[in-house]
Design a protein around this nucleic acid. Sequence first.
DNA 1: CATACGCTTAACCTTCTGGTTAAGTGAAGG
DNA 2: CCTTCACTTAACCAGAAGGTTAAGCGTATG
Lengths: 123, 123
Amino acid sequence: MAGDQLSAVFSALADPTRRAIIAELAERDATVTELTAPLSISMPAVSRHLKVLERAALISRSRSGKWRASHLEAAPLREAADWIARYRRFWDSSLTRLDAHLAAVQAAGPATDRMADDPRELG
Amino acid sequence: MAGDQLSAVFSALADPTRRAIIAELAERDATVTELTAPLSISMPAVSRHLKVLERAALISRSRSGKWRASHLEAAPLREAADWIARYRRFWDSSLTRLDAHLAAVQAAGPATDRMADDPRELG
DNA sequence: CATACGCTTAACCTTCTGGTTAAGTGAAGG
DNA sequence: CCTTCACTTAACCAGAAGGTTAAGCGTATG
């Protein structure tokens, strides 16, 4: 299981250490040693976390001498965000008219659409 | 690890079967039997997936006679979306001018070029 | 009331995960 | 050179995950 891209991304994000690494890389590229420093685990453990992130395409890595820098790649995060966004209508009360319309269409539920009586169509 | 709420949510979303269940519940509440039908796994397996989703607070369940209906609870999805949204500037091309400025400042310039000399200059 | 139904729990198995320490690789440098 | 540094890989372990079948439990129902 968990073979598809989305699963790999969510699975990568499920670990707090990896989220911390992502947060760090959001500020600057970093070497394995730099990433290990603030964490309370060994460097091999960090190395494997990086491999997981790399497999999920959440980071890319460049070699320069004996250092390897990790760089955040956000494209998979967008896919994850897009997936979650499908359910945005379930929590967001400030829906735009377009969102409401699409939500109504997707839900295929006529009664639940509170804006169905609004004559204004989306522009 | 993986004890916090966010980890539980991402971990729950990491499984394709559970995402399928969420997609189903987004359309209508459903019993365990109804949820099991389109899936190629046994009912006990689905029952455990539901328990995982319940622990992540992604669903609530109500009992009615011998049937138990599952209901989607989207609040945790919002938390997950909020976390990912922190990195939106890394993929969203429609940045505001302020966001672009902050992104440029935080990225802190061409790190990979200087890395060849000394990794400490990465930041 | 006996039985079938809906679902959960138990027991078991295999695979995955995340950590460790120790050894291996390749570039820097005294 | 030959060591040190940065990092990866290997070997190992404990526990979690996800599947199965079988059994249990409570509610409908013929």
